[in-house]
Amino acid sequence: MTTATTTTPLPGTDTVLELLPKVSLHDHLDGGLRPQTIIELAEEAGVELPTTDADELAAWFAEKSNSGSLVEYLKTFDITTAVMQTREGLERVAREAVLDLAADGVVWGEIRWAPEQHLTRGLSLDETVEAVQAGLDAGVAEARSLGQRIRVGQIVSAMRHADRGLEIAELAVRHRDNGVVGFDIAGAEAGFPAGRMRDAFDLLAASFFPATVHAGEADGLESIRGALLDGRALRLGHGVRLAEDIDITTEGESTFARLGTLAEWVKDRGIALETSPSSNLQTGAIAQWGDELVDHPLDLFYQLGFRVTVNTDNRLMSGTTLSRELALVADAFGYGVADILAFQLNAAEAAFLPVEDRVELAEMLVEGFEAALAGEHAG
């Protein structure tokens, strides 16, 4: 999926969202492949596909992903990971991911993936990380040759059910000077709490290496509590079910929100919520509040002052881009340019970057928004 020719207006305005600089914190490498790339890599690898037409394949992924179940949603990754088992496949997918993010206006992107899922064709864990980094570097160089500004970092994920957490944490730390900026645990959330990988998180803490943890997507408050206590998470992957710890009451024309201690801690510490609106609908993460985007607790969090960020999760499965996700939430909640910038500044502050780089990134975002809007008004 390429976004080079896409123009997504901010609802109610002439502002083209692709032209605004953006920060992407939650983007899965194996969830963002171009359909045509899957077809070509599958032919080389002997992987059977439901169709060899790129448009039909994109539609197939979207259909299978709209299941309302995280477990069913995750099954679509059997195909994408199957074509990412060689150095060449990993490099190509990583390079194209950077180009697609750059075309969408992303200036800092953190791309996460699970090396342990890419070993069936003989690569070692270190070789997979090196292959992905080579692809990311090539993508950045190519994007910059096209006049696009983008930097990226890898987030190495351990699969919650696989019991290789310590090994993957060691891998992440080993490559901290070769593009890896953070650690994550992913996969089936319910039944696989962060505490199962306490040794991995102990190592990361001792190494002063940052972690984000998928939590509050397919499981509730206990999962989030575990991510914070056992995982020492600096960010929550999705985190939408934190809304279960917020009590809303109405008295006359006034509405009041009472935060439980967990929600209060997340808010007061500035722990970022990596919401992914379309994905959260697809997996049923917000089912208890409704089945439309306007039911998403994202706006509740935002109005209460949480560090909310907007992300894509899996661009292929959701048929989306970051610009599209921002347009969707803007349409649902009546957001304007200032709100879109606020989400980007939240993401910049939460990025796994040195503080000086985060300050520079925030300045770039503000300048980019001002320049884009000035050009629009001049036109």
Rank of each mutant, 00 (worst) to 15 (best):
D14M: 09
V16W: 10
S24I: 11
G31A: 03
I38R: 01
L49Y: 10
D53H: 12
A59P: 07
S65L: 11
S67G: 14
V83G: 01
Q85T: 02
T86S: 09
T86G: 01
E91H: 01
R92I: 08
L99H: 00
L99K: 00
E110C: 02
W113A: 00
L119F: 03
G122M: 06
V132D: 05
G135H: 04
S145W: 11
Q148L: 15
I155K: 07
A158Q: 03
A162V: 08
D163H: 09
I168H: 00
V173W: 04
R176K: 11
V181F: 06
G182E: 04
A188R: 13
D199R: 12
L203H: 10
L204P: 01
A211K: 00
G237Q: 05
E244C: 13
E244K: 15
E244R: 15
T250Y: 10
E251K: 11
S254K: 15
T255N: 07
F256E: 15
L259C: 11
T261E: 15
E264C: 15
A272K: 00
T275F: 14
A285K: 08
A287C: 11
D295M: 09
V310E: 02
D313W: 10
D313F: 11
N314Y: 09
T321M: 07
L322Q: 07
V329H: 02
F333R: 01
V337P: 05
D339K: 03
A348K: 03
A350S: 08
A350H: 05
F352E: 01
V355G: 00
R358Y: 12
E360M: 08
A371T: 14
G375A: 15
A378Y: 15
